[in-house]
Each structure stands twice: as C-alpha cells, then as structure tokens.
Design a protein around this nucleic acid. Structure first.
Length: 474
RNA sequence: UCCAGCGUAGCUCAGUGGUAGAGCGAUCGGCUGUUAACCGAUUGGUCGUAGGUUCGAAUCCUACCGCUGGAGCCA
C-alpha cells in the first residue's frame, strides 16, 4: 500500500515506520510515527524523545518544542511510554543521526511510570529473561527476534528455491521415533479417575481420546520420509517437544526443528545439502540484518564477524568417526572421557575437533551402528551406519542426519536388534515394501542455528518465551 | 538427573562474626541541539526462605527454593 493510499484510508498523515523514516533520502513535509519512548532529554525550550517501534535497532529522534499544547505532559514522559507523533522530517542539526522529526503534535497513547523495569542503561540477559514480556523492547532482544524472523524466512526460501515441498508433520503423534528423547504425553484422561484395564489395574489407553497412547512429537522424520517417498524433496519446519530434564544453555523442552528429507539421495548428498544450507543462511543474515549483527559483534560476541566470515570462505571439513577417533587419540590432549572406537564422542571431544583442531564447521560421519538408531543405513563394512553430525565452534552439534535404511530385510533386522516391535512400524516398513528408494535427511535445530548466527550463548535468549524444566511462565 | 558457583537497594556489585555500602537508575533542582548528556541534592534494604550455632549472623552450620555455568541426553 502506498503512502497516499494509507492517507486516503486513514484520513490522516501517512504512518511511517522508524526504519523507513531513517532511510529517507529527502525531507518529508508531514508524517506520523508511532512507538515507545526509549529516553527523553530536556533542552532549554524543547525536549528530545528517542522513539523506537521495533522496525529497526535505531531510534528516531523527535523534537518536542515547548510550544506544544501538552508540553507539560511530554516533560513527564518516562521510558516505556507509547506515543504517536506527527510533523515534518528534517535533516538533523545534531550529530549522530541524519534525520529527526519536528513534532507538530504528540499524542500520549499509553503512559509509563518509574516502576518500568527497563532502564536506560545496560541490563544482563539473565535479568531480562525474568521479564520476557518486556525484553523485546530492549535493543538486544529486538535484534534477536528480528533475526529470528528473517532466519525462518531464509530457511523457507532456501528450500523453496530448490523445489522442496513444505510438509506439516503431526504435532500429536503415536510414534515415539525410537526414543529421540523423553516424551510429553497427550491425554484427556482424568488423572483422578483413569479408566483401568480389567485385570492388572493398569490404565486403559484404549479409552483415551485417540484410543491409544499419544505424545507431542519429538521429530517429524518418519512422517517426512513417507512424503519424501512421494514428493521427492520435502522439509518440515515446526515445533518439537522433548521432556528431557536437561539444564544447559543449548537445550529447551520446546524448540523448532527443520527436517529436510530427500529421495534418491545418499549420505554425501545429505552432507552437501546440510553444508550448503548453513552457508546460505549465514550469507542471508549477513546481507539482510547488518545492523543487528553489528550489535551482536559489539556487545555479545567479539569473534562473531570473523567466525561468520570464516564459515563462508572455508569449505567445511568432513571426516569419518574412525578418523575423528584417531585424531583425538593422537592429539596428546588429556580428556575427561575415554576416546575409543565404539564410544560416543563427548562434548569435550567435539569441541576439540571443531574449535581447536579444525577451527571451522566439521561434519563427522559413519558411526558404529551400536551407538545409532535403527533407521540409519548400514554401510557395506557391516559395522558402521551412515550417520552424520555437523559440529560448529561454540555450540557443538547443530545438525544430525543420516541416509535411511531402505532395504526391508536389513531394516527388519535392525528392529529386532533394537528390540522394537515391528507392529508399531508397519507403515514405516511399507515405505520399503512398495517402491523403496535410497533417501536421506537431517534435523537442524533452529534455535541452535540462531545462536550460531547471533553469537547469543543461551538458547533461552533466542526463544520468545522459553520452556525449560521447572519454567513455563508467560 | 549429577557436579560446581551464586542469591545484599529497581539494576550491577562490594561487604567473610560487632551500627548495611558504592556506582548506575529513579525523583527534585540547575545547565544545555542533546546522544546510556552534564552538575548538585534527594530517594532507596525483612541481606532468597525456614531452622540452628553465638552475647551478637549478610557473614558460620543444616534444609529447602530460585538462578547461573558445566556434564549426560540431544537439535
């Protein structure tokens, strides 16, 4: 909608965002801005107001002259108040900004007072976390959530540009995806008086809402496989729930995950896709959110600019699990946990590899079958599976993926070996029974990617209202 | 869930057995086309909660709660 159209509809001056106003190339006779007052500074016969509307990191400076009819009220404006201001946009006489608005009229929409918790001084992210409903009004969190929005958009753009179909896999699910994490149960059974089975007294879930046990999804992978084996290239992007009692800066109980799944694709194609995507996303954010990245580089992570530069310039390293073990054993480094073929790589091992040895993102692939789930494809060596983890400095695992086992007999053997019930996976086995194809995919933790791009160290600070053990306020 | 650390003013912190402090913020006044303005004054507290030790506890002990970091699990 053009400014003129907006004016015709609203019958008043066109509403301009702070971002648009600051990008102006010439003075404007009259415009209207709306937003929240960040600070007020009084001059001799007028007052400076810093207005922020979230459209940008930057504020618009508003000149409120003492000739305004409500100047007395304006001088009592405190940080946090919401206003509407109308007037001409002119070149600023002061340094620090090129444009400012000379107000002909300022309407106080919602006053604030001295109990407003955000002060015009720095706050720690930990304090701001306690006021999650107000923290998007801070510079840091405004930036985080603008980048979050852009990153989500860039993910869709990446896949849509490449012909992937966006699939909405179920959020309520009957499959537990082979213990990818503890599950949140979904039920309408009254815990005071649950229906019992006739004999052993256990709960009769056949009488529950879905006539079976159901959970919040921990992964859409299995369902995505079904769609990949029809639409060829698909991706999911949605909320994921894990009831793990994890208390770390990298875990949340509700997070968003992106899970591409590609038919006629092997592990190499999968790793190529993962690396291409990570680079694409970094490049997009660098291009589209420069102001935000500048703030992160200044106040959050001094290394950020160099690290992102590095990610774009250098090819990612790629080594097998066996090579990783050999490197760790030769490192001469003393680790708390043993390094031995057949054992999982610990955080300290992954960190050494990506942060100290290679100093760049690293994909480790072909893990021993014993430490990986049933659906991963068995390699010809008979002892490893086509798993891959993409590790990045500072965060660790950001992507986990694999080529899926497409051979019916091998998959059935895997189910037996993992002591899983074939009946629960009938539909999944059908995909191998009818027109089975090699296919592969991975899961990208959206918030972990966002942490990597912004340098923000705690996952709770890249989620609007984070859910973690013992904490579901707001 | 395990290990470690921390809970003192609105915020960030100092205070390690003897009268509860600073900076910032806020409030008031002054100055001023200012930029987290500047100058002066004022305001500010059940020291996380509950017990215990002691003549006396913010300080020592115990339990609990909360937060932070790390581990495991993973994205």
């Amino acid at each position: 909608m053009s400014d003129q159209e907006r004016r015709r509809i609203s019958g008043m001056a066109p509403v301009t965002s702070v971002k648009e106003a600051l990008r102006s190339e010439a003075p404007v006779a009259a415009l209207e801005v709306r937003g929240w007052v960040r600070t007020r500074r009084d001059a001799k016969d007028f007052s400076f107001l810093e207005l922020n509307d979230g459209s940008s990191l930057r504020n618009l400076q508003i000149i409120a002259k003492d000739s305004l009819t409500n100047y007395g009220e304006i001088q009592r404006l405190t940080t946090g108040a919401s206003i509407r201001a109308r007037g001409p946009l002119v070149a600023s006489q002061g340094k620090g900004q090129s444009w400012e608005l000379i107000a002909d009229e300022i309407e106080i929409v919602g006053a604030s007072d001295d109990t407003y918790p955000l002060q015009k001084k720095g706050h720690t992210p930990e304090f701001l976390r306690e006021i999650s409903h107000l923290r998007p009004r801070s510079n840091l969190f405004g930036c985080v959530f603008r980048v979050r929005s852009r990153l989500a958009f860039a993910i869709h753009q990446f896949f849509q540009d490449r012909g992937f179909v966006y699939v909405h896999t179920p959020i309520i699910t009957g499959s537990d995806c082979e213990g990818a994490g503890e599950l949140f149960r979904v039920t309408t059974i009254d815990p005071q008086k649950p229906p019992h089975l006739p004999n052993d007294g256990g709960i009769d879930y056949a009488q529950d809402f879905f006539a079976r046990r159901t959970y919040l999804t921990v992964s859409g992978q299995l369902e995505a496989e079904a769609f990949a084996c029809a639409l060829s290239k698909v991706y999911t992007f949605g909320p994921t729930f894990r009831a793990e009692n994890s208390n770390t800066s990298r875990h949340a109980n509700e997070f968003w995950m992106i899970e591409p799944e590609v038919a006629f694709c092997d592990l190499n194609g999968d790793m190529d896709l993962a690396e291409e995507m990570v680079k694409y996303l970094v490049r997009d954010i660098r291009e589209k959110c420069p102001d935000e990245l500048e703030l992160f580089a200044k106040f959050v992570d001094k290394e950020l600019t160099a690290r992102l530069e590095f990610v774009l310039e250098r090819p990612f390293q790629r080594i097998t699990y066996e090579e990783a073990i050999a490197l760790l054993q030769k490192s001469g480094r003393k680790f708390d946990f043993p390094v031995e073929y057949g054992l999982n790589l610990q955080s300290e091992h992954e960190r050494w590899l990506t942060e100290e040895h290679f100093k760049c993102p690293l994909t480790v692939f072909n893990y021993p079958k014993e430490i990986k789930p049933f659906y991963m494809r068995l390699n010809d060596d008979g002892r490893t599976v086509t798993a891959m983890d993409l590790l990045v400095p500072g965060i660790g695992e950001i992507i986990g993926g694999s080529q899926r086992e497409e051979r019916l007999d091998v998959l059935e053997e895997n189910l037996r070996r993992h002591k899983m019930d074939r009946a629960d996976y009938k539909w999944y086995l059908d995909l191998r029974r009818y027109g089975s194809v090699p296919h592969a995919g991975f899961g990208l933790g959206f918030e972990r990617m966002l942490m990597f791009v912004t340098g923000v160290a705690n996952i709770r600070d890249v989620i609007p209202f984070a859910r973690t053990p013992g904490s579901a306020e707001f």
